[in-house]
Every structure is written in structure tokens, then in C-alpha cells.
Design a protein around this nucleic acid. Sequence first.
DNA 1: CTGCGGTCCTGAAGGC
DNA 2: TGCCTTCAGGACCGCA
Length: 285
Amino acid sequence: MPELPEVETITKYLNKHISGKTITDVLVLSKKQFPQDPRLVIGAKIESVNRRGKSTIICLSNTKAMIVHLRMTGQLIFMKGIFNRYETGKQIPLSGGSELPGKSTRVIIVLDNGKLFFNESRKFGAIRIAEDVGADKEISKLGPEPFNKEFSIDYLKNVLKRTAKPIKALLLDQEKIAGIGNIYASEILFDAKINPNRSAKSLCEKEIKKLFNSTLSILREAIGYGGSSASDEAYIKPDGARGLYQNYARVYQRDGKPCRKCKSLVKRVVIGGRGSFYCPSCQKY
DNA sequence: CTGCGGTCCTGAAGGC
DNA sequence: TGCCTTCAGGACCGCA
């Protein structure tokens, strides 16, 4: 699913390829995924594409912005030029087939240099138009960005000591830290050698320091690999290529397989209603 | 404040 | 083969 590293990969790509382009049309195939009036953005120029947490923020020349949240199965695919499948010769390996628009295409944003497809099979994700991104209901509640200096060992210490929630659940809390989802929460905890069920406030200073460092190093590594595109994950890059992190995952979806470090079998447990993966030997309670 | 369970939604996987 | 059930999950909401 698209978490910070995946959305970072998407926004970097789009910022490079669609900044400066003009929105000539918006085709809304599913109103729920684009509930506002498309005329609010048609004719506007894209100034930049940025990320905040797991949201893609497309800043427009008319002082508005489009906020895209991909939830679990969302994709943003960019096809340069005017095309159909016979003309392009380019097969895009989408999860639901190789054609665009596909079965899960919900919105097509037409630009003067190509088309941006918003695919979302589950229909949980959506695009909304905001006048003031900072005031947006979801964006305004987000905690610090992991790569921002606001996120520090001291900050983490303060947040952790306030709650007895399992540390895994806390890492997923977007109000505490923005951008971590189910894949990287498990991966970070493995790297930090912390059991996902440990109460947040039970972590000692040394563990908090390790957790901080693991958060940054795992996210940085995942960005380097262009995110994670396991077979059952919808995420692919805007050019249709797959991310590579799944080949290097330590524990995520590796239950029953040997731990890469100690060969014990990786376990799956449910924490806060979500599947969580860990090595019972490397991450003792 | 916390935590729990239901809600949205669809495709994949499992059972018979 | 094919139908039916179950499950997964990010964020939110109502309830205890």
C-alpha cells in the first residue's frame, strides 16, 4: 500500500513530469472519488507536486490544490501524449490488466502533455480540492514528517511516554508521525529489534534512540528502492514500473519464512486489527 | 482520553 | 467448474 516511500516516489516523478502543465479537462468516472466540481481546477496550471504524510498534493496556479489520498489500492499513472493502446505500443503493467483506462480507473486528469490516471479499486481513496491545504481536515491533523527536524528523539520520547498502546499501533498513528503504514511499521520494529506488542511507554531510552534511527533508515532505504510492489500490493510508479523494496523486506508478509538474521520463523499477529509481522527471536517481548 | 468494533469497498483466496 | 463466504486494510465515527 502507498505509504511515505511510495508517495514520495510518486510525487518526485510527477513533480518532474507535470509541473508547469495545464489541466485541460477532468473526466470523473466515479463521483465518490472526485466529489467536487471539476471546473474548479480545469484551466489551472500545475505549479508543483508535493507530499505530506501519505497524501499527494498537487499545487495549482489558481491558489487551489488537489489533495490525493491513495489509501490502500490507489495508483497515479501518468501517460505522456495523446494515445490509445494501438498507438503507443507501451504496455503498462497495471494490477488489473494493461489498458488505460482500466477497470479501476476513477478519474482521468487531462493535461496539455498527457493524462494522469487515478486508479483505485477499493474506492476508499479520493481527490479533493482545497483552497488552504494546511486547513484541510486530514492534513491539519498530521504529526511531524519523519525527515523534518521537528521529528527528533526528544519528540519521540515525549509521544511514547504518554501511551500504553502497543508500539506498532503508535507508529501507525498519523497524528503522532506522518507517513508510516502497515509495511514499514513492521519493518522499522524489526530493524530496531523491538517487539510490536511492547507498550509504547515501556521503551527505554536506548530503544527509543534505536527506533528513531530505524525509522529514518528504513524509510530512506525504501525510498531508494522506489517503494514496495509485492504481488498483492496495488502500488506501482507513475510510469508503470514496480518498486523493489519487497525483495528486501525483513518481515512484512514473510510469516512462516525464516528470519533473514536468525532463521527463526517469522510470525504474524493482529495488533489493533492489523496484520503485524515480526521475528519472535530477534524481537523478544 | 482510550480502546473497541463497525463502516466503506472490491478482488483474491478458501471451502464445498 | 462455480458459487458463496471470508478477509484485508487507512482513516473515521460512534459508543462505552
